Simulated scan of single mutants.
Amino acid sequence: MKGKLICYLMSGLILIFSCAEAMSASWQITYPRTISDEDKSTEYPLKVLALALEQTGVNYQLTPSEKYYSQGKNLSRLKDNREINVVWSMTDNQREKDLLPIRIPIYKGLIGWRMFLIREDMAERFKYIQNLDHLLKLIPIQGSDWPDTKILQANSFDVVTNINHSALANMLSNAQGDFFPRSILEIWDELASLKTKNKLVIQDSLGLRYPAAMYFFVNNKNRPLAHLINTGLEKAIENGQFDKLFNQTYRSYIEKSKLKKRKFYQLKNSFLPPLTPIDRKELWFNPGGF
């Protein structure tokens, strides 16, 4: 009996020391570098990641990769466990096969609510669109390695693409396509930063909507980091810090998008993985509740 008691005590001490060591360890986390210092697209995801890590109490350091890479290359480097050990990206079946997802949509699904950048001289044309079939006659522009491209193509759109994100707005300006669908959380800052030959504007009455989630992903073998991020996110959701950060960042964008006055055409997303937590209502944007 005495031997068993000593064994239990030793096991408990080992567990305590192991936990203490994990808490005191410094997590070195490398994320994809942006194309320029003016690109602010990483600010919110990094705030969410930092919030999650802070909820766990660990020491951590977030560092950008040495070079800028396209989204596809970032995902490949993460898969090969080369330099980058976390990315945030829209999920699909292939990405969840290649990488380990933390299945909490950091944009609460609004990555799938799309408004349109258009050339100013096309504004009148869009006033005559009365249904989805009318919109299908126009050509959208998207990134060649974006899941959105496959979604649009699967819904019968004839999509023109480019691997270079910065080239897409110029393609629209040069009439190589008719509209550029962007998330309601992205489109405002992107429009403000664009410098194109022909003026681009946000179309004021239409949009597309499809179920979509942007997750943090880590390498398939990096389960400790996945567990750490997931634990922190769940704590932040439970104590309200996640929603607080989301609302502080995006409330004004959502309000000026005037969602209730805009006609959103619903598309199917056949690439949405079966383990997407659709039933967890607290994870998704609710326009009525907002």
Rank of each mutant, 00 (worst) to 15 (best):
Q61I: 05
L233K: 11
G143L: 05
G72C: 10
H227L: 13
L208T: 15
V48A: 07
A213R: 11
M115W: 10
D178F: 07
D148Y: 05
K261Q: 06
Q153I: 12
D98Y: 13
K137P: 11
P64S: 03
E120Q: 04
T34C: 00
E190Y: 01
K281W: 09
E255N: 06
S41Y: 02
D204A: 11
R77S: 00
R262M: 12
L191S: 04
L194M: 12
F285E: 05
I163G: 15
S270N: 04
K256E: 05
T34Y: 06
A192S: 11
S36E: 01
L15F: 15
A213V: 04
N59F: 00
R280W: 09
F179H: 03
V201T: 14
Q28M: 03
R95G: 03
T196E: 03
D80F: 02
A212I: 03
Y60I: 04
M214I: 15
S252Q: 06
P273D: 09
L225R: 10
Y31K: 09
I84M: 01
L152Q: 12
E54I: 13
L168G: 11
E96G: 05
L78H: 00
M90S: 04
K79A: 07
L46P: 10
V201Q: 11
L233Q: 14
I254N: 02
N93T: 13
V58A: 07
I184G: 08
F180S: 08
Y250G: 06
K260N: 12
G72R: 04
A50F: 07
Y253C: 03
W188F: 04
D145P: 06
K199A: 14
P274E: 10
K260Y: 09
K263V: 11
R33N: 10
W27H: 10
G207Q: 09
D80L: 06
R119W: 09
G207E: 03
Q266L: 13
I278F: 07
N286C: 12
S257T: 05
I35V: 10
P147N: 00
L135V: 14
E43P: 04
G232K: 12
D133F: 08
R125M: 07
N162R: 07
L53A: 04
I29Q: 01
M214Y: 12
F180Q: 02
I184K: 01
A212L: 03
H227M: 11
D243S: 14
N269G: 05
N81I: 07
F271T: 06
T149M: 05
Y44L: 01
S193L: 11
L46N: 00
L152R: 02
T249K: 02
L194P: 09
S144R: 10
K221W: 01
E96H: 07
D243V: 10
E21L: 13
F271H: 09
S173M: 11
S65V: 00
R262W: 06
K256P: 12
P147I: 10
P105L: 02
Q203H: 03
V159S: 03
I187P: 04
G12R: 04
Q266M: 04
K108E: 08
L245D: 04
T196V: 14
E120G: 05
H134G: 12
Q176L: 15
R77A: 02
